[in-house]
Design a binder for these strands. Structure first.
Lengths: 241, 241
DNA sequence: GCAAAAGTGTTTTCCGTACACCCATGA
DNA sequence: TCATGGGTGTACGGAAAACACTTTTGC
């Protein structure tokens, strides 16, 4: 198995990803549990290759964890504090997982790679949750969707990172009108309203919301959606282009 | 003289600064000319020390170039393209400045330091231009304020960087109400209006602008400003706290 | 026909803009 | 007392919110 130190990754920079999905009228985020003894939850992270554009790096990292490409992305913050608790976390992980070999581990290249100071570039992604196949690997032992108000305690300052991403999303949803990326290709206005109400934690008057969204002039009307429910069938919409 | 390679700077990350000032009813930016033969204009940049918070690094870089501390800062973008023309610029600089020693230079540690790929973190600063003492050094041979619509052609993609900073400022001026940082500690509402009109390139109705600004509830009214002009003296204001 | 939800049109409210007015200042 | 620019109150118009009304669907 190749070690992380074998690749030509940029030193001292990494990418932290907050992946948002929407399901059962809930905004969710993809949280990983490390493949070690102990409750070490984290956000998907990764490094940038020597000759790789940073956006490509994010897409690559997201593809590895979700199996989808061309994900909607926004950079939301840089995490540049020199001490973000990375060493403390690693020492805790090691003490729970290694005993006699502890010193050997502590001196390894890998330990040095992971404990060195990094500047983290924060991105959030908006995905169609039904398209995602959470894909664990040797490090991320499991990956699960957690409702935004029920995120486990994560390592380091990742709970704050997620919070910052959510704050940016709340602003961007109106400025960039990007919430549609949380839905399947075709959707109804009601579904859009659910997303908005969920993210912004407020309710909208149905009729006015419909106008507000359609006046953005970014959707095209498609066929009606017959669900068998005994009421008028809503139109499906899709992002223009 | 110590070389840049002597310090414990983080590899592959740097900081690009757009420093905005306001003077003579013009928004200006501080642009440096490199201390080499040729027209190499650039924005002030710098690196981050191993154990230094990134915001501290920006403040340090700004202090070195302007002589002021605790500057108002906003991160506006990450420049993460693998190729931003850095090597091309350095080769041009070398070919204009070195002849026989060229190969020697090209192989030096310094050349390798400067040509390696970096991820740039973009910050813009808003300063009281009257407090700034542009401070050249061995690299930045001169530093001058240029009106925003008359910026010289800079190296690499720095003209685009400046443009991105300006775009963010135009959004932030309303969202974050941060334009006051371009003025001295005490200022009149008219001066604020000049700043807004200059940045947003539109004119405001005086009376409504006054209300708009005062309703932000971020200013405290101080004494009147008697200029000797034969009209009613305006109040001075200052940011609360 | 009826209940439920979608879609459209109308009224009302509110906020931003325009503007009228008064005030202070120094010649 | 006049010209100039500063400060405050009011009236208007357009957009957003509230709401009334019509349409579609399946039982």
């Amino acid at each position: 198995m190749p070690s992380i130190t074998d690749f030509n990754y940029l030193n001292h920079v990494n990418i932290d990803c907050v992946i948002f999905g929407f399901e059962n009228n809930q905004l969710k985020a993809l949280v990983a549990k490390l493949n070690y003894k102990g409750e070490f939850y984290t956000l998907p992270s990764g490094y940038i290759l020597e000759d790789e554009d940073i956006e490509d790096a994010v897409q690559r990292i997201l593809f590895e964890r979700t199996g989808i490409k061309n994900v909607y992305l926004e950079h939301f913050k840089v995490f540049g504090k020199a001490n973000r608790g990375r060493k403390e976390f690693l020492d805790a992980l090691i003490s729970e997982n290694y005993t006699s070999e502890r010193d050997e581990k502590s001196n390894s290249n890998i330990y040095r790679w992971f404990t060195k100071r990094v500047v983290s570039i924060g991105y959030y992604a908006l995905v169609d949750i039904s398209k995602v196949t959470p894909t664990p690997n040797e490090i991320y032992g499991s990956l699960e969707w957690y409702p935004i108000d029920n995120i486990p305690k994560m390592i380091m300052d990742f709970n704050l990172v997620l919070n910052d991403a959510l704050k940016s999303l709340k602003v961007d949803i109106d400025v960039k009108a990007n919430a549609f990326n949380l839905l399947p290709e075709k959707f109804t206005i009601s579904e859009v309203q659910e997303v908005y109400e969920c993210i912004l934690q407020k309710s909208y008057v149905r009729t006015n919301f419909q106008k507000k969204i359609l006046e953005l002039d970014v959707l095209e009307r498609l066929e009606k959606k017959y669900t068998g429910a005994k009421n008028k069938a809503p139109y499906l919409y899709r992002l223009k282009n």
